[in-house]
Computed example of a mutant assay.
Amino acid sequence: MKTILTIIFIIFLGFTAQAQNGTADVKVETIEMTIVTETSYEMNLETKTEVARLYKFKNSNIKKELNFLTKANKPKMA
């Protein structure tokens, strides 16, 4: 009996869901855009002087950072 009532209830909900009035379709205004096929490139030929730092040893900062010590690396007394 319970299953029959459940099936009838589901069918009733299905019919009521389909009987609802749908909202009116909203029209959207579209904008037409043109496609640009030609592109212009501008080259800037101004010379800029930039300063580059020179180090005596090539990888000195990198090697110093990679050789760090942690508390786990230190020997412990037994």
Results as ranks from 00 to 15, higher is better:
62 I>P: 00
54 L>K: 15
38 E>W: 01
69 L>P: 01
65 E>I: 04
65 E>V: 03
68 F>I: 02
14 G>W: 01
68 F>H: 05
72 A>E: 13
1 M>C: 07
50 E>M: 10
14 G>T: 03
30 T>H: 06
67 N>P: 01
15 F>G: 04
39 T>E: 08
33 M>N: 15
69 L>N: 05
17 A>Q: 06
1 M>D: 11
12 F>I: 11
75 P>T: 02
46 E>A: 13
14 G>Y: 03
75 P>N: 02
14 G>K: 01
32 E>C: 00
57 F>L: 10
57 F>Y: 15
22 G>A: 11
30 T>Q: 08
77 M>C: 09
58 K>Y: 08
24 A>C: 10
32 E>D: 13
36 V>H: 02
25 D>H: 12
22 G>Y: 05
56 K>H: 05
34 T>H: 05
11 I>A: 10
41 Y>S: 13
43 M>N: 15
7 I>E: 09
24 A>G: 10
12 F>L: 13
77 M>N: 12
3 T>W: 10
15 F>T: 04
49 T>V: 05
33 M>A: 13
24 A>V: 14
50 E>Q: 09
39 T>Q: 06
10 I>W: 05
52 A>D: 11
30 T>E: 07
78 A>D: 13
54 L>C: 08
47 T>A: 05
60 S>R: 09
35 I>Y: 04
68 F>L: 01
38 E>R: 00
73 N>D: 15
49 T>E: 08
75 P>W: 02
39 T>M: 04
60 S>L: 11
23 T>V: 13
76 K>L: 12
6 T>G: 10
38 E>V: 03
37 T>K: 04
8 I>F: 09
28 V>D: 01
52 A>Y: 14
28 V>N: 00
19 A>T: 00
30 T>V: 09
40 S>G: 07
10 I>A: 12
63 K>F: 05
5 L>M: 11
54 L>R: 15
47 T>R: 03
51 V>T: 15
7 I>R: 08
42 E>A: 10
71 K>L: 09
49 T>K: 06
42 E>Q: 14
46 E>K: 12
1 M>L: 06
42 E>C: 02
27 K>Y: 06
9 F>S: 14
